[in-house]
Design a protein around this nucleic acid. Structure first.
Lengths: 267, 267
DNA sequence: CCGCCTGCGTACGCCAGCGCACAGATGCTA
DNA sequence: TAGCATCTGTGCGCTGGCGTACGCAGGCGG
């Protein structure tokens, strides 16, 4: 991956007006995020906010007994470190790098300072936080009601949306720990999907062949979260021509969302 | 219930400095919230924010197939209508009154206006929002990993914390729909708890006899959410002597939380 | 080229929670 | 006081997901 890096690969940073961006730019540090790196642990004081570009970070909750579950994921559409401007400083969840890549990080006090100016940054971050809320509540409902296979599909899709290539570097074990289910459950689901011709995988690599297929088998939660994110950030103007967060015309009502599968691109 | 009503029964309102409170006070309308009332539906434009005093409101997500799950609850410690100041205007979840009572409501634009002044109100609401995030992610993990009985205990405890009397008006059917589980599951769990002498119930009324017992059987999630809320709002000064949000001394580390059961008050 | 570590396949028993169905109990209303 | 709607108890059979355990294979390092 020797492509040029730019803060604009992160949608939040790309949406800042020039003045605000230039105020922050000198302080944005590009950092590599290797797989498995822990950006912060529960209840620990965090020093930086991270704006992923190519990396994906997973927000986890780990139970006393050691079981874990992802409560939300963060890619180039968002930011890690909400609590820095929300006022709590710490969170009860952990942030772990789920797909290696890069992110720009910003020192705690600078973020807070920019947030408190009450400009565009504030509005963006707040709306992104709301999207995060949606994601978490959706995850809660999903964990209650949907099958492992549905969740695997959902999870592949959201991950895919954050990765341009369509090639996920990802063991089934890891997927299982994200979803908080057994590895064998993922193996079985993945087997079904492979037999159906939707995906192909080999030792830690998952390749999506038929996106539509996954969408058809995923639960509603995928579309719901995606639609809500694009709604919340629909009016942002990117300084440069980033492809929109979600290329989707008028926000469909929820009941329609299920049928939207039909007009998604094939691949 | 012919007690005098006061906005100070709501912890957020009670924590406002005098100047801010007096600006809002003339616009706070006391409204009764009957059981089952829908404060807002998914994706609908909301006109008011609600600050419960004696009522409890439940934030729900309803799946396409009609199954539902509570993602968070709001009592006198919080507010319903986060999205009004977060910038999204609407939410994908519904807000339903879970325990009848009262709330003060505030017109949308006035809330937003006060929030945007950047005073104490803003900080309070943001920190409360973070508590809500914690609650939702905890719920997600809880739905994944904990048993119905544990969840019933947790749910009774959080509800109890919001109701002074200790007498819940609550059918098992309703509890079930909150948790997103079968009614029979709740019946069984409640039966166990009654046999153990922790609670007593009769047709729509649940009385808690031994709080300690419930705490011992509940999952960690109860303590975790409670501790986090008190941490986030620990530094607030109430204009009047409200009993603190949570009467608890130094925030115990998570691993200790389980043992904290021992020193909770009986009954 | 060989061996080993890591990731994947599969199988078996187990149980929590589900869906359904119906009987008994309780408390409101007439 | 009787009737009735509603809430609660209980008992099926079913199944999805868990825990465990082991065999196989791909791919990397020596």
């Amino acid at each position: 991956m020797s492509t040029a890096h730019s803060p604009n690969q992160n949608h939040l940073l790309a949406a800042l007006p020039t003045a605000e961006f230039e105020r922050l730019a000198p302080h944005l540090q590009l950092v590599p995020l290797p797989l498995g790196e822990v950006l912060y642990e529960p209840d620990a004081q965090m020093q930086f906010a991270y704006f992923p570009t190519t990396a994906i970070v997973s927000l986890h909750y780990v139970t006393e007994s050691g079981a874990s579950a992802e409560t939300a994921g963060v890619g180039n559409e968002g930011m890690v470190g909400i609590s820095l401007f929300m006022g709590g400083d710490t969170t009860s969840s952990a942030a772990v790098v789920q797909t290696a890549g890069h992110a720009y990080r910003l020192e705690r006090s600078l973020l807070k300072q920019e947030f408190d100016r009450g400009g565009m940054m504030q509005g963006l971050l707040l709306r992104y936080t709301q999207a995060l809320l949606t994601q978490m509540s959706q995850t809660a409902a999903c964990n209650r009601h949907h099958s492992v296979e549905q969740q695997v599909c959902r999870w592949l899709l959201v991950t895919l949306d954050r990765i341009p290539s369509g090639q996920l570097v990802m063991t089934q074990e890891l997927v299982a720990s994200m979803l908080g289910v057994r590895r064998e459950g993922v193996t079985e689901a993945a087997g079904n999907l492979q037999r159906a011709g939707f995906i192909r995988y080999r030792r830690g690599h998952i390749e999506v062949l038929k996106r539509k297929g996954l969408e058809a088998r995923a639960c509603e939660c995928y579309e719901a979260v995606k639609t809500e994110l694009s709604r919340l950030l629909s009016d942002v103007q990117y300084r440069q021509g980033i492809s929109a967060v979600v290329a989707q015309a008028p926000p469909p009502s929820r009941s329609v969302a299920a049928n939207a599968v039909a007009d998604a691109e094939a691949v």
